[in-house]
Amino acid sequence: MARPSHHFQSAVGRKVVMALSGLGLVLYVIFHMLGNLQVFEGSHALNGYAAMLRDMPILLWTARIGLLSLAALHIVLAIQLTLRNRRARPVAYAVREYRQASFASRTMVVSGLILLLFILFHLLHLTAGVIDPSSADRLDTEGHRDVYGKIVHAFQNPFIVACYLTGQLGLGLHLNHAVTSSLQTLGLERAAFNRLIKAAGPTVALLVVLGNVAIILAIFLGIVRG
């Protein structure tokens, strides 16, 4: 009798764990985007929201560690499966034509890498404040840390905006295939829901990217000001 852990070491088992960890990250990305949309409500709302999160350090750090482990698990499994898949076809075709595979599905490794680099950049930039120390934490009029000011400052810089837009491109591409794909991997399949499942990936990708890009562009184009 095999232990359940053994069950998840097969190719399908690993895919399931990838799907679950990926879906966890997708949920986070959605909440992250929704939270940040408060930028449109002004500095008071956003800084208050940030302060609320910081007031619950246990929750914050649990979430951070959880997210990091999910991401690490997702990446390790992705590397393992990719290597295994490379080995499965040692000689490539001279001529190859795709019929059904979407562009997004064929570029998961690339979009995943872009995403990984972007996340590192994002953490170094806004969380650790390494990339642009000039926007070091200041306090707003209510004594909260001025996250709003920091963001507005950052997205006036064309280089940073370009980096973030590239990151969003990676995120959009990745989610486009990932969400629907993970539902398939988890065995979700009913004739009645087929179209819903098919639409899930592109819809989530579109909403998340639209939300994030709206913030970036609104600041860059001066619609939202400091």
Partner: peptide, 27 residues
């Protein structure tokens, strides 16, 4: 290799076997 859910298999299958069966297999 493992399944990437790209569905090229279904597109070339001479019997047009649906990838929905892969979901069944996963389940």
């Amino acid at each position: 290799g493992s399944c990437g859910n790209q569905y090229e298999c279904e597109a070339v299958c001479p019997k047009r076997i649906s990838v929905r069966f892969i979901a069944t297999l996963n389940r």
